[in-house]
């Protein structure tokens, strides 16, 4: 009887993992197969495969614009990751480890922010920082100039907006990490004569490192695959990244699906490598 129960328990877990595996495979493998197929084949007018080609990849790795898009994607994702970690991390530390007032505001703002669709966030930031937004208006009023103080349609603008999109999530998750970590160690460091900066660098930061790295990878992956900010903020400033290049290849007439698929395969490869490291953290 006990053996049966053990077998069933053991097996039910196996059944669940097999079921989840099958569901994921059914959901993920067909599109991935089509993507790979499209990226290395030529098709006729009906869409049937007519032959094998490496032309899509060749075009991508020799085209100046395409290489620049890959570079822009990396800069954009890295910049947004750093900004969101700094903004969210500092806020989490202030709220969890200091006696800063109005802590409730941080949570309130975070929850409101997480409940707002990202596309609205982006549009709101564009209104705020855009050419006719209040900041540039104020600058023109004060300076009497007709120029803009800040051009939001730049890589800086993209990183700023994407970074702030993710900082509430970083705040929540790092806040939990700081709360779970034992404050005694920091107190012990302070009692032993360490300054705040020393404590932070030698105790708080190493303790939070696993969480920080996991979050960094997470935000980086999401930013590489992000579309709202590159499209709405980047394209008017002629800054293209992988996702906007994929999109543009699908909207030209006739759509260049092979080229779009090749771009997507490169993105999948980048993200797969990152996810591998993410799973090992």
């Amino acid at each position: 009887m006990a053996g049966m129960l053990h077998w069933f328990r053991h097996d039910s877990r196996r059944i669940i993992s097999i079921t989840v595996g099958i569901v994921l495979a059914v959901l993920m493998l067909p599109p991935l197969y089509i993507l790979l197929q499209d990226s290395i084949t030529t098709t006729d007018a009906v869409g049937d495969v007519t032959g094998f080609t490496l032309g899509h990849f060749a075009k991508m790795f020799t085209d100046k614009d395409a290489l620049r898009s890959i570079w822009n994607s990396l800069v954009f994702a890295a910049g947004s990751t750093v900004l969101s970690l700094i903004a969210g991390g500092v806020l989490a530390w202030l709220v969890e480890r200091t006696n800063a007032p109005f802590k409730i505001l941080a949570y309130l703002a975070t929850i409101i922010s997480l409940g707002t669709p990202y596309i609205l966030h982006v549009i709101a930031w564009l209104f705020l920082l855009g050419k006719v937004g209040p900041l540039n208006d104020l600058y023109r009023l004060v300076s009497g100039s007709t120029d803009n103080l800040f051009n939001v349609n730049s890589m800086t603008g993209m990183i700023l907006i994407e970074g702030f999109l993710w900082s509430p999530l970083v705040f929540l998750l790092l806040g939990a990490t700081f709360r779970a970590a034992n404050a005694d160690m920091e107190e012990a460091a302070r009692m032993s004569g360490a300054t705040v900066a020393q404590t932070w660098r030698r105790v708080s930061l190493p303790l939070a490192m696993p969480a920080l790295l996991a979050l960094a990878l997470f935000v980086f992956i999401r930013a590489i695959g992000g579309f709202e900010v590159p499209a709405l903020v980047g394209m008017p400033g002629r800054i293209y990244v992988l996702t906007t290049d994929v999109y543009e290849a699908t909207i030209v007439v006739p759509p260049d699906l092979g080229y779009a698929a090749a771009f997507s395969v490169v993105m999948v490869a980048i993200v797969a490598v990152l996810l591998y490291f993410y799973s090992r953290l």
Binding site: G47, D48, I251, V252, V253, P254
Partner: peptide
């Protein structure tokens, strides 16, 4: 839908 999407939809349905 947009032109390209309409065309793709009709093409895929025919296939």
């Amino acid at each position: 839908a947009a032109s390209s999407d309409v065309a793709l939809k009709i093409r895929n349905e025919a296939r």
